[in-house]
């Protein structure tokens, strides 16, 4: 395997006796789209939360660009270039679309603790914010309140906000969940576009999206890695078929 950007070794998380994630080893190659799939309750989202330290692992270590980030705070991990999205659309509902993206751009100017300055200093970020909004097809909605956008557009806004940070690696938690067909296609095309010069790790349920987008797939079941490989290898693996269709076979 080539250049590894993100690696998890022996990642384990127990919740009061229940092992949600058990000894997961994961290596994401730089510049690829890596998908994390598995049936409900397989521990995919927990894995995500562990990787970005929104929850603390019981044991195991995480390396980003060769640096141990296991103990880093979530905000610090984001500043190193590993940025995540959320399963439920995560926008700032009462801010406008422009302000949403600007919050992300604002972070790159450093700590925003300057409470004595007018927010007009932020207008210098507007050009870049509009470019990003345009890129995800939201130009028409630039001054709308984010909370009023339809669901699919909120996801697009969230991606624009994430991209504003220009992250080295994106972690997308179910980017197409709950979307209509045309929205799914639009978001899939967007992910492909942004992955051109970045690494993407995504949790995804829509297998057609997974098959067309991902270079590499890790299948989780009951908190453990069941199989790894490309779509052909994984989809023909008997253990994977059983995990997905287990009940029907039993």
């Amino acid at each position: 395997m080539g250049d590894i950007i993100l690696e998890a070794r022996g990642l384990t998380k127990e919740f009061k006796g229940f092992v949600a994630v058990n000894d997961v080893n994961l290596a994401v190659e730089r510049g690829t789209i890596h998908a994390l799939i598995g049936p409900n309750g397989a521990g995919k989202t927990t894995c995500f939360n562990l990787l970005t330290h929104f929850i603390t692992p019981t044991s195991g270590r995480i390396f980003f660009n060769g640096r141990d980030i296991t103990g880093s705070r979530p905000a610090a991990i984001a500043r190193q270039g590993l940025v995540r999205s959320f399963q439920i659309s995560a926008v700032f509902p009462h801010l406008t679309v422009l302000e949403n993206v600007r919050i992300a751009l604002q972070r790159k100017r450093g700590r925003s603790l300057d409470f004595w300055r007018s927010e007009r200093v932020l207008t210098s970020l507007d050009t870049r914010a509009r470019e990003l909004i345009d890129a995800v097809g939201l130009a028409r909605f630039v001054d709308s309140t984010a909370g009023e956008l339809p669901y699919g557009r909120k996801r697009a806004l969230e991606i624009a906000t994430t991209l504003a940070l220009d992250p080295e690696m994106l972690l997308l938690d179910e980017p197409t969940a709950g979307m209509t067909h045309e929205d799914v296609d639009r978001i899939a095309a967007l992910i492909r576009k942004v992955a051109a010069d970045r690494t993407v790790l995504m949790v995804e349920h829509n297998l057609s999206v997974v098959s067309t987008l991902s270079d590499h797939i890790t299948v989780l079941a009951r908190g453990e890695v069941l199989a790894q490989g490309n779509y052909e290898t994984v989809s023909t693996n008997p253990a994977v078929v059983e995990a997905y269709l287990g009940a029907a076979h039993g």
Binding site: A75, A90, F92, I103, S112
Partner: peptide
Amino acid sequence: QVLKAIRENEPRAISLGY
């Protein structure tokens, strides 16, 4: 602005590096 963002959605603000 950041304070409002945190009030609206704290996990998201953290995930943006704040």
